[in-house]
């Protein structure tokens, strides 16, 4: 079972459909029990950092997420879901993040239109299981104004250029996260969900 963590931050429908496209058994839930008994977790989300953390805290999900990660359950963060994994964000300086990835979420420079909306390339800078059979410099759909900057550069596995070069994919142990929306990135995006399912279940098993 894959649990999509439902803390109230919109557009879970497409994430769910992308996983179900490969026949995965998906639960959308805000219950700690569903988080702790999942084989794999997806932390999705669009919206503001402070608002997202507030919802996670109100629903008392932070501890369950951290415990699940400690237990070794693979987690896939998408967009705001990537940012929430960090310690803090310029978007909401007064709010602490989950702190799973050491570092800070920063605002993109405003010499180009913001939000950064559209198809942009992801340069694979480190071979990661999430990128299996994905070409470097491939196109994915982005919608965001902030990006996560980890202190330890070794966790960066993908980079994208928009005014600056920023980390667009992260891999730290059993935690995977991307700033773009694979569920909106056509065929190449779906492959990333397939890769996550393979990480969770191993190859050639039923989801």
């Amino acid at each position: 079972m894959i649990t999509i963590i439902d803390y109230g931050a919109g557009n879970l429908f497409s994430v769910r459909k992308a996983l179900e496209y490969f026949g995965a058994n998906v639960v959308v839930s805000d219950a700690s029990t569903d988080i702790l008994k999942a084989k794999g977790l997806v932390l999705p989300g669009v919206g503001a950092f402070g608002w997202g953390m507030k919802l996670l805290e109100e629903k008392r999900l932070c501890e369950a997420i951290k415990e699940a990660i400690d237990k070794g359950i693979p987690l896939f963060g998408v967009c705001l879901g990537l940012q929430l994994l960090f310690e803090e964000s310029e978007e909401s300086p007064e709010v602490k993040g989950l702190g799973i990835i050491k570092g800070k979420v920063k605002k993109l420079p405003n010499n180009l239109p913001l939000p950064h909306i559209g198809w942009n390339q992801v340069k694979i800078v480190k071979d990661a299981p999430i990128f299996r059979e994905i070409n470097s410099e491939g196109f994915f759909y982005f919608v965001h104004s902030y990006y996560g900057e980890p202190i330890d550069e070794r966790v960066i596995c993908g980079e994208t250029e928009y005014g600056i070069i920023f980390p667009s994919a992260i891999w730290q142990d059993n935690v995977f996260a991307v700033q773009f929306h694979p569920e909106k990135s056509s065929k190449e995006g779906l492959k990333i969900y397939k890769n996550f399912l393979d990480i969770v279940y191993g190859d050639n098993t039923s989801y």
Partner: peptide, 11 residues
């Protein structure tokens, strides 16, 4: 919208 979003993975 639901039917489209179930099958189509672009924005």
């Amino acid at each position: 919208v639901k039917r489209t979003a179930s099958k189509v993975f672009i924005p």
